[in-house]
Design a protein around this nucleic acid. Structure first.
Length: 414
RNA sequence: GUGGCUGUAGCUCAGUUGGUUAGAGCGCCUGGUUGUGGUCCAGGAGGCCGGGGGUUCAAGUCCCCUCAGCCACCCCA
């Protein structure tokens, strides 16, 4: 075993793993295109305050999970822990407010200094979708529908549950927060240590607690829907009826919350029970306060992000590239002719493997290893006859074919 | 960051109460076939037993530290 190890929580992607990632990305591109989304690629690092100002000073992401460093110019930069803030920054710096609404998907690596587990890495990959500039609930419906459609196209929608909640608008959320804090303060002595910490930092998070003692207290905690004002209630109702119309099934989960301050109204997660404690496959919500908070014009937004590694573990094994033809020359003269024929075949649309060295036996073995569907053998005899021997690698049948009709003959293997 | 489990060949794993040159299957290489793979037969290469320290006459095996993976928590995709 080599002592040269990759950085903790990072992973080389190759072989089937890489195909799985590609499948996830190809699928989100394909499906989101039908919804009128365009792709955006923002830098993997930003000025640190892009994240620290927007994600909140108390969030775990900011306090302990960011890869932050100073560059040679003295700027504090951070490897992006998520991409919504990056998209918002691009929106502001690019002056994109002229063309609302905007619908973006993105894809790429994210970085968080966390303790790795399965489906949870320090460099991981996400795909995401965002709609900017739409105040109404239809954007939420569309973004969630896209999520469901995407999961369906990956063949995993059936193993997921769409959990849905609303945090209400700022006013409702604030009122609820006060009620909740008052309630939990009344049970301070019975709360777990983690939850007592959360009470000060992020009281809504207590609703998520897995501690059994906490759960009993949570059962009787005030429910957010009771704190909704008319606007919040109407918004949520329209999201629900929109999803009904769109044919997207959901489960209401009044305990589903978002830690970050800029979230409001819709919060949702597509979860699975098949990946242990890393159950969130696609998660998102509405963030009407984000862009303004970053110094841009008041612009509402709604969207989600999905973990590619997690989805990659869920999907069926994707097909690799087409089985190739293997061109096998015997001798130096044939080698040159083989290169010529190989390029002709590739330009004609065939997938062709040309071994780089070795005697015929070695090259046949390689042809077998790359799962060639047929071998095109070029020896002295064939060269003299202006022909090639085509061997079907499944049946072992061989036939000498004139070079002039080689492409026609090989069409059956395409 | 906290707690627990696990690290032996490229891969999956055996390895007895501490006791000779650490094994198997798969994969890889060579030959049986100087123009024929996949099957078969014969042979071969490949291990600082994750790393460091300690106990012992003797450590893959026991102890400590460390690194990594996994599981749960925290948190999240």
């Amino acid at each position: 075993m080599s002592t040269l190890q990759p950085v903790r929580g990072t992973h080389d992607l190759l072989g089937e793993e890489c195909l799985r990632h590609r499948k996830v990305i190809d699928t989100v591109r394909q499906i989101s295109g039908r919804y009128g989304f365009d792709e955006i690629a923002t830098p993997v690092f930003e000025k640190t305050d892009v994240f620290s100002r927007t994600l909140g000073d108390t969030s775990d992401i900011v306090t302990k999970e960011m890869y932050t460093f100073e560059d040679k110019g003295g700027d504090s930069l951070t490897l992006r822990p998520e991409n919504t803030a990056g998209v918002a920054r691009a929106f502001i710096s690019g002056g994109l407010a002229q063309n609302l609404p905007l619908k973006f998907i993105y894809q790429g690596p994210m970085f968080r200094y966390e303790r790795p587990q399965k489906g949870r890495l320090r460099q991981f990959h996400q795909v995401g979708a965002e709609i900017l500039g739409v105040e109404g609930p239809l954007a939420d419906v569309e973004v969630i529908s896209l999520g469901a459609h995407f999961l369906d196209a990956l063949g995993v929608l059936g193993s997921t549950t769409l959990e849905l909640n609303s945090l209400g608008d700022g006013e409702s959320r604030k009122a609820y927060r006060e009620k909740l804090v008052a309630y939990f303060e009344g049970h301070l002595g019975d709360l777990s240590k983690d939850s007592r910490d959360r009470l000060a930092r992020n009281p809504l998070r207590i609703l998520d607690s897995k501690d059994e003692g906490d759960r009993k207290i949570i059962e009787n905690a005030p429910v957010i829907a009771d704190s909704f004002n008319d606007v919040s209630k109407a918004f949520f109702d329209q999201v629900l009826s929109g999803l009904d119309t769109a044919g997207v099934a959901y489960t209401l989960n009044p305990r589903l919350v978002r830690g970050l301050d800029y979230y409001c109204h819709t919060a949702f997660e597509f979860t699975t029970t098949e990946l242990g404690s890393q159950g969130a496959l696609v998660a998102g919500g509405r963030y009407d306060g984000l862009i303004k908070q970053m110094g841009g014009p008041q612009t509402p937004g709604t969207g989600w992000a999905a973990g590619i590694e997690r989805l990659a573990m869920m999907i069926e094994s994707p097909e690799g590239r087409a089985r190739p033809l293997a061109v096998i020359p015997i001798g130096d003269v044939a080698e040159i002719k083989a290169l010529e024929i190989t390029q002709q075949l590739r330009h004609a649309g065939f997938t062709v493997d040309l071994g780089y060295s070795g005697n015929m036996k070695k090259r046949m073995k390689r042809a077998n290893n790359v799962q060639a569907i047929a071998a095109v053998i070029l020896g002295e005899d064939e060269l003299q006859n202006k022909a090639a021997t085509v061997r079907d690698m499944e049946t072992g049948d061989q036939l000498e074919v004139p070079l002039a009709s080689l492409e026609d003959h090989l069409t059956r293997y395409r």
